[in-house]
Computed example of a mutant assay.
Amino acid sequence: MALFRSLLATFAVTAALMGSPAHDAESKADPLIIAEQGSFAAGGTVQKAPGTYVNNAPTARGQSFHGDHLYAFYQVPEKPRRLPIIMLHGAYQSGRSWETTPDGREGFQTLFLRRHFTTYIVDQPRRGRAGNSTIAATIEPVPNDQLFFDQFRLGTWPNFFDGVQFDRDPQALDQFFRAVTPNTGPYDANVISSAMSALLERTGPAILFTHSQGGEPGWLTAIHSPNVKAVVAFEPGSGFVFPEGEAPADMPSAAGTLKAVEIPASEFARLTRIPIIIYYGDNIPTEPTAERGKDNWRVRLAMAKLWVAAVNRHGGDARLVHLPEIGIRGNTHFLMSDLNNQAVADQVSRFLAEKNLD
């Protein structure tokens, strides 16, 4: 037994020297007990072609088509907390964003299961495992890996940023690129929020996590569904909704112009009734730059700050945390899967505890 304890101590010291958080080492040593899991579709529409279906001479006539739903995979841990967490991905991604990390560590799905939250991982309509779109789209194999390397702030191709929280192993980068998933139909925030609202009718009250492009349908979902009890947004990139007449001016950048979205004041007011927190990572400049990948996020962070101010001006409870400013450095656009995702998860856990949502 003494030898066993000695080996455990050696392992703990080695893990610390390698930069692994002790909490991470402990959690991986413990079995993860899942009491229930499954998957289902939520929302969507059914289209029907006129005519009569002929079994032995099939055409489109008389047939139906189910589309524009989302896919949800859920897991319920032993002794679950009262509110589940629904995780909505961003552009060119799927629920895989939350499942694991490019270097094979536990993603937010598992980290929060270990913290006894039931989790729902979503593939949004017209993406991934919810690919049936009621509107046609052409998917072209256009090379875009290097664009995403820059756009998602791993670095400036082919070089990683100094201190970036991304594993330099080529296999990790390969996995990162292979997580990219195309749209099978036009992106439509209203279609997504409609399906998300249907999901929340099934789950009941829940906490909503969003990432990147998931920000706009996340805000719309929180507006339309009273079951959203809080929003935790990771680097929302577009679709910032403002009351009519209060939208800030367009924000040009090296990556294009960012525009706000105006909605009725009565709808915006619903966002002031729940706690909201937004997180952004590192390598985002404060002044304009010709570097497209960086300048793209300069205006998005600036717009997010104006959005938080608008929510609070109307009596809401919104907060923006720029992680480098609190000593958490090196994060990419994928905060939930970076090397320090445990530290980011800890920040979220503290917020949920502060708001009595845990």
Rank of each mutant, 00 (worst) to 15 (best):
A2F: 15
L8Y: 05
T10P: 06
A12S: 08
A15Q: 15
A15R: 15
M18L: 15
E26Y: 15
K28A: 15
A29V: 09
G44E: 06
T45Q: 13
Q47E: 15
V54K: 11
T59C: 01
F65C: 01
L70E: 05
Y74W: 01
P80S: 02
R82E: 09
R82D: 09
L83S: 01
P84H: 03
M87I: 03
H89A: 02
R96F: 10
S97R: 10
T100Q: 08
D103K: 09
G107M: 06
F112I: 07
T119C: 13
Y120T: 10
D123R: 08
G128A: 14
R129M: 13
V142F: 10
P143W: 02
N144M: 11
D145M: 06
D145H: 11
D150P: 03
Q151M: 15
L154G: 06
P158S: 07
D162K: 12
F166T: 03
Q171S: 13
Q171L: 04
A172Y: 02
A172H: 02
F176Q: 12
R178M: 11
T181R: 09
T184E: 07
P186C: 07
P186A: 08
S193N: 06
R202L: 00
R202I: 05
T203F: 07
G204D: 06
I207A: 08
H211A: 10
G215T: 09
L220E: 03
L220H: 05
H224N: 12
P226T: 01
K229C: 00
A233F: 03
G237Q: 05
S238L: 15
G239C: 09
F240I: 06
F240Y: 15
F242Y: 11
A249H: 12
D250H: 11
L258C: 06
K259C: 03
F268Y: 05
R273I: 02
R273C: 03
Y279C: 06
Y279T: 04
I284V: 12
P285G: 12
P285K: 10
W297Y: 00
W297D: 05
R298G: 00
R298S: 03
R300E: 06
R300P: 02
K305A: 03
W307V: 04
V308L: 06
A310G: 07
N312V: 01
G315M: 04
G315V: 07
D317L: 08
D317A: 11
A318D: 08
V321H: 00
V321E: 06
P324T: 07
I328Q: 14
G330E: 04
T332Y: 07
D338N: 00
A345W: 10
A353R: 04
E354W: 02
